[in-house]
């Protein structure tokens, strides 16, 4: 994956990003990050290392004190620039209750397409299609706050996918999900043909859904080869019994 075509320019390019919250230490310290089309990146890093901050900077919800952001090759600086970014990059929030604010599922999913200027009928058609892609047909008139945690997460994903983004950012998508819904999410992510980057603490999940795993340290992204997570398969006698490797 590292011998990419040089013509293939990054969809997200962050250079020298510095960010700190008022009165706090540097969360991001001269951070560099390139995301290329088609990449599936997992970010595995300790709490407080600035992962969510990084996503919010890409979306223009936070503005860095220094550094440059280029999305799809264009530099973005102002709130107005970021409005276009948000049409193309979808962010799945950690807490689905933050994302779902409409009374019914269908209205919530249609919110994005309507904001993008789609006509009512078209927005409804897109929303129904997205719901059915995620196996949520029949959820249209359900009341959002009465959904279960797993349903909320999938509907949140629908609200993001309905805007047909080119890049997806997922902030701890597994939080509060049971095994079944986790499995569903893994199969959805393997099906969609999108560039995505996700934060998770679950190594098995990242292994199943990401082709690269980055970590963050001292306000920087570590893309060192040594940090790649891998798993070996091996066979030996009595391997089906509980045993220990020395």
């Amino acid at each position: 994956m590292n011998n990419r075509d040089p013509e293939n320019s990054p969809v997200i390019r962050l250079s020298d990003i510095c960010f700190s919250y008022p009165g706090g230490p540097e969360v991001l310290d001269h951070l560099h990050l390139n995301v290329y089309p088609g990449e599936r990146i997992g970010i595995l890093a300790p709490n407080g290392s600035g992962k969510t901050t990084l996503f919010h900077i890409i979306m223009g919800l936070l503005f860095p004190q220094a550094g440059t952001i280029e999305i799809f090759g264009e530099p973005v600086r102002t709130e107005k620039d970021f409005r276009d970014v948000r049409k193309n990059i979808g962010l799945l929030f950690q807490d689905a209750d933050d994302q779902l604010f409409s009374p019914t599922v269908l209205e919530d999913v249609a919110f994005g397409p309507l904001n993008m200027g789609k006509a009512k009928q078209e927005a409804l058609a897109i929303s129904r299609q997205t719901l059915s892609f995620l196996g949520l047909s029949g959820f249209e008139d359900r009341i959002t706050f009465k959904l279960s945690g797993g349903e909320k997460k999938l509907v949140s994903l629908a609200t993001v996918l309905a805007m047909s983004p080119r890049v997806l950012l997922l902030d701890e998508p597994l939080t509060g999900l049971d095994q079944d819904t986790q499995g569903k999410l893994v199969s959805i992510l393997s099906e969609i043909d999108l560039t995505y980057m996700m934060i998770s603490h679950d190594i098995d999940f990242l292994e199943a859904t990401a082709e690269k795993i980055y970590t963050m340290k001292d306000g920087k992204i570590m893309v060192d080869e040594g940090l790649y997570i891998h798993r070996h398969k091996h066979a030996h006698m009595l391997g089906n019994m509980p045993h220990r490797h020395e």
Binding site: H56, M59, L61, R83, R86, K87, G90, L91, F93, D95, D98, Q99, F101, F111, G112, N115, M116, T159, V160, M163
Partner: peptide, 12 residues
């Protein structure tokens, strides 16, 4: 956070 999520979905 809700407002941020709404802006991410193009709310203006």
């Amino acid at each position: 956070r809700v407002y941020q999520a709404m802006r991410c979905r193009g709310f203006a």
